[in-house]
């Protein structure tokens, strides 16, 4: 009986890392959006925070897109 431990380990490791990275990045994006709202209320510029938020969401999208590309190819 041959069991492919390496493949099982890969799935486990990749899943943990990718999940935490994606959720973390998305959360940072939401934090930044929230900061942008707060900045708008205080009258300071909301641009930096907003750009940060978009960068975080773009990183999430790119990560997901790359994952799907890996599977489809």
């Amino acid at each position: 009986m041959k069991i492919d431990w390496a493949a099982l380990g890969t799935v486990a490791g990749v899943s943990l890392v990718v999940t935490i990275a994606l959720v973390g990045m998305f959360t940072l994006g939401i934090s930044a959006l929230s900061a942008a709202t707060a900045a708008g209320r205080n009258g300071t510029s909301r641009l930096p925070a907003r750009l940060g938020a978009y960068a975080a969401f773009a990183a999430c999208t790119a990560g997901v897109g790359f994952g799907i590309y890996l599977i489809a190819s």
């Binding site: 943990l16 999940t19 935490i20 959720v23 973390g24 998305f26 959360t27 940072l28 939401i30 934090s31």
Partner: peptide, 10 residues
């Protein structure tokens, strides 16, 4: 882990 992280950051 992701839930803990997201609640912590946010």
């Amino acid at each position: 882990a992701a839930t803990r992280l997201t609640y912590r950051i946010n």
